[in-house]
Each structure stands twice: as structure tokens, then as C-alpha cells.
Amino acid sequence: MNIAQVDLNLLKTFEALHDESSASRAALRLGVTQSAISAGLRRLRELYGDPLFVRTGRGLAPTLRANQLKPVISEALDRCRQSLAMISPQNLHYEGRSVVLGLSDDFEIAYGRSLMEAIALRLPKLRVIFRQTYSQIVAAALLDRTLDLAITAGGFTERRLSRQVLGEGDYRCLVDPHSLAPGEETIDLQGFVTREHVLVSSGGFIGITDEGLAAHGLRRHVCASTSHFAALPYLLKGSTAVATIPGHAAHVIAQMTGLRVLPCPLALPHYPVELGWRTQAQLDPLLLKVREAIVACFTLPPPSAC
């Protein structure tokens, strides 16, 4: 196959179909008709000798070959975008472009709004897409180009990734203030163990609090677990349960919902908050500006004041 015979706009059609899982949404994204997308998909199927996308009850699902092609095609398109940015580095028009930022929902709750503002200040009209990730899966997501950048508590040791430390995190307790005695501002370790606990965990069984209690020969009773920090206000309100979560999220959730933040009576280790990206993409002007915005946001006062 001679590349001179290939319409390179088909690569944009492929990327839009893979990201949107819908011909109609891909058409809206590219500003073309749905019939143009369908025609492009037919040509892509001929070009690669594969169905690429198959219709399911939830839209278009990529085939194995499509998933293999996605990182290669996205990288090629990013290189083209980067070359155009080199012609006009001071260009302030980013409408139609997007960046995918991976982070867990505790960071999204605490920093999402200030990240939106910081990015909009430097890259007007750029769309930021927040996508859920965590340290155990973030490296693979960056390398397969599901994410452009990510903020997690580590996970960037793969040699093709670069990282920057943004700060250090700790843990706090979150409770319904009505479950506290009048004037009670803390709970001791015995009261902590006595209470029921709500666990936030992707696995749903064991958390860092359990490890810390085990070192003291203690155990807690977890009455419920969830994978989303955003669910905590609904699970804690009206109960005597406690949730031990990252401090940045605890302060913002308390500020928005009326829950109370208390010091954790258990000595739990602090953890690094890191920004990671593909080393190969570190000279992309757009990503450089987004990284600057992220670093600026994390040098502001604590999230409760952002």
C-alpha cells in the first residue's frame, strides 16, 4: 500500500470513532455528516482489511486490530499537531482540541475546578477530559495513549514514562458531625475502632487503614465499601460511620456537604502526589502548557481554599 494513495483524513475519522464509539458523535466531533463518517469507515475497513468497529447494543466497539492501531494512529496525529504548533507557538486558539487527564475521583473532587480554570487561562477553548485511573493501571493507560497525562500516588516507574512530584498527601477522617458528642473535636483510637467504617477501594476489601490497625493488633468493621469518593456524603450522612480518606478530598467534601474532618488517630504513611506523562511526548507545546497549569494549581493553598 502506497501512502500517497491514502487520504490521511481517514486517520482522524478512525480516532474519532475509537474515542466516541458512535458514528453520529464522531460526525459531530469532526464537523462532518454521519454519511461522511460511514463512508470513511468503509474506506478504513478496506485499507486495513478488518471490520475495525462492530455494532453492539452500546454503540461501536473496536476490534482487536483497531485497539492495536489506536496508539500508532494517535501518535501520528499528535506528531502532525505538534508540527503545526511549531509554526505558530504563540497560537492561543485551541478550540476543537482536547487533552485527556487521568486521575482518581478524590483528586478530581479536590482539584478538578481549579485545574479547569488554570488550563483555560493558558489554553483557551481547550477541552480537558478527566478520566478515572489509579497507580496500579496508570502506566499502561499512558503507554496505550488512553491518557495524555495523569495525576496519581505513584505508578510512573516504567522507563518510557517521566514524572514530576507535585506534593505529598496524608489521610484524614470524615464523619457526620451529629455523630460526635458536644465539643468533641477528635476521636481516639479506641473510638475509631469501635465505629463502623466506610471503605473507599477499587477492590472493596482491604485498605491502608486495615494495614495500619493490624500493626497494633486491631481490626475494624467495614459496614460498606465503594469505589467512588463522591458517594461518601450519601453513605455517611445520618450514620455514625467514619471514612478514612486522603486529606485533600476530605476537606473539600466536608466544605461542600457539612461533614466534619477529624485527624486520623492512626499513624498512616504520607504518600507522593505525582504527575506522569509519556517521555516521548514531553516536547509537545500543548502538553507542556497543560503541565504548567497543573503544577501551578498544586502550588496554590490547600484544596479547601482553591
Score class of each variant (00 low, 15 high):
Met1Val: 12
Ile3Val: 14
Ile3Ala: 12
Ala4Ser: 10
Leu17Trp: 01
Ser22Asp: 12
Ala27Asn: 06
Thr33Trp: 08
Ile37His: 06
Arg42Phe: 14
Leu44Cys: 11
Leu44Glu: 05
Tyr48Thr: 05
Asp50Ala: 12
Pro51Ile: 09
Pro62Trp: 02
Ile73Pro: 03
Cys80Pro: 00
Leu84Met: 13
Ser88Trp: 13
Gly96Asn: 09
Leu101Asp: 04
Leu103Gly: 03
Phe107Arg: 02
Glu108Trp: 12
Ser114Pro: 00
Ser114Thr: 13
Leu121Gly: 10
Tyr134Ala: 14
Leu147Val: 09
Ala153Gly: 15
Ala153Ile: 12
Glu158Leu: 09
Glu168Tyr: 14
Asp170Tyr: 12
Val175Glu: 08
Ala181Ile: 12
Pro182Met: 01
Asp188Glu: 04
Gly191Glu: 04
Phe192His: 03
Val198Met: 04
Gly212Asp: 00
Leu213Pro: 02
Arg220Gly: 04
Val222Met: 13
Ala224Thr: 14
Ser227Asp: 14
Phe229Met: 11
Pro233Ser: 10
Arg260Val: 01
Arg260Ala: 05
Pro272Tyr: 06
Pro272Ile: 11
Gln280Trp: 10
Leu286Asn: 03
Leu287Val: 06
Leu287Asp: 03
Ile294Asp: 00
Ile294Lys: 00
Val295Asp: 06
Cys297Pro: 02
Phe298Trp: 07
Ala305Ser: 03
